[in-house]
């Protein structure tokens, strides 16, 4: 049941699910009504994408799992999201920096998957890419405005970019699962996205008068293989508590 395709779908679904949950934590606490709505819209888009990926993963597993059992009944070691998306929200600048780096990457991922040899995967990518294109436009616009805003907003956003920067490395590190997906024409080599991603991020950060952090340094990784930071288990405790304490509860 643990086919490479299943693992691959979990990675796609878990990235969307965990980031959705993080953004959902802002609900009712956004710095302005408009931002609050935008973030929760973004969270709902990602939740919709997570449902599609995880439903497909459950189908692949074929062991009676469904999107809900995958979302609510797995432990942290069984989650396959990258470390970037589980990082805590922090300040609005931290949330925005995380979102911007993710959106820029995710839009490239989905564009690659449009050409997937797997029609179900290509179909989900086609739906998701429109949503993520808007997310990227929005997060890029905000990065430029806050970076090139006041001295305070500039300093906060630069600090946030510097803090979350190490987590981008993992996005571009392939493993055996990626290699198998490349071989079957389903997926792509993550390394091949890096130049395009960096060029885009550099362009936006330049416009925002922000510095691109120096290359190298700490490169945390392992999320894709299930080795997470302590933040994920706390997030899951909140996300899963209802289904864990009242199994099968529904509306």
């Amino acid at each position: 049941m643990s086919s490479a395709r299943y693992e691959y779908l979990l990675r796609l679904g878990d990235n969307a699910l965990i980031l959705s949950q993080r953004l959902g934590e802002w609900c009712g606490k956004g710095p302005a009504l408009e931002e609050d709505m935008a973030l929760t819209n973004n969270a709902l888009d990602l939740l919709g994408q997570a449902r599609l990926w995880l439903s497909l993963a459950a189908e692949e597993a074929g062991d009676g799992a469904d999107e809900d059992t995958l979302a609510y009944l797995r432990d942290d070691r069984e989650f396959r999201n990258v470390l970037l998306v589980e990082q805590p929200n922090g300040s609005y600048a931290d949330t925005l920096a995380r979102q911007f780096l993710f959106d820029a990457w995710s839009s490239l991922v989905l564009r690659r998957l449009l050409a997937s040899s797997d029609p179900a995967i290509a179909a989900i990518a086609e739906k998701a890419v429109k949503e993520v294109s808007y997310h990227l436009r929005r997060s890029s616009d905000l990065v430029v405005r806050l970076g090139d805003g006041t001295a305070l907003s500039h300093a906060m956003l630069q600090g946030a970019i510097d803090k979350v920067w190490p987590y981008h490395h993992e996005l571009f590190i392939g493993d055996a699962i990626d290699a198998e997906m490349v071989a079957s024409g389903i997926g792509f080599d993550p390394e091949h996205l890096k130049d395009e991603w960096l060029a885009y991020v550099r362009e936006v950060l330049n416009e925002a008068t922000l510095k691109v952090p120096a290359a190298g340094g700490w490169m945390p990784k392992g999320g894709k293989q299930g080795l997470h930071s302590e933040h994920l288990s706390k997030l899951l405790a909140e996300m899963q508590t209802l289904q864990r304490s009242h199994p099968g509860a529904s509306w």
């Binding site: 408009e34 709505m37 935008a38 819209n41 808007y134 436009r137 929005r138 905000l142 405005r145 805003g149």
Partner: peptide, 13 residues
Amino acid sequence: PDATMAVNNARDV
């Protein structure tokens, strides 16, 4: 803060 963001916000709200 400006017209572009106003269009974005209008889309979201």
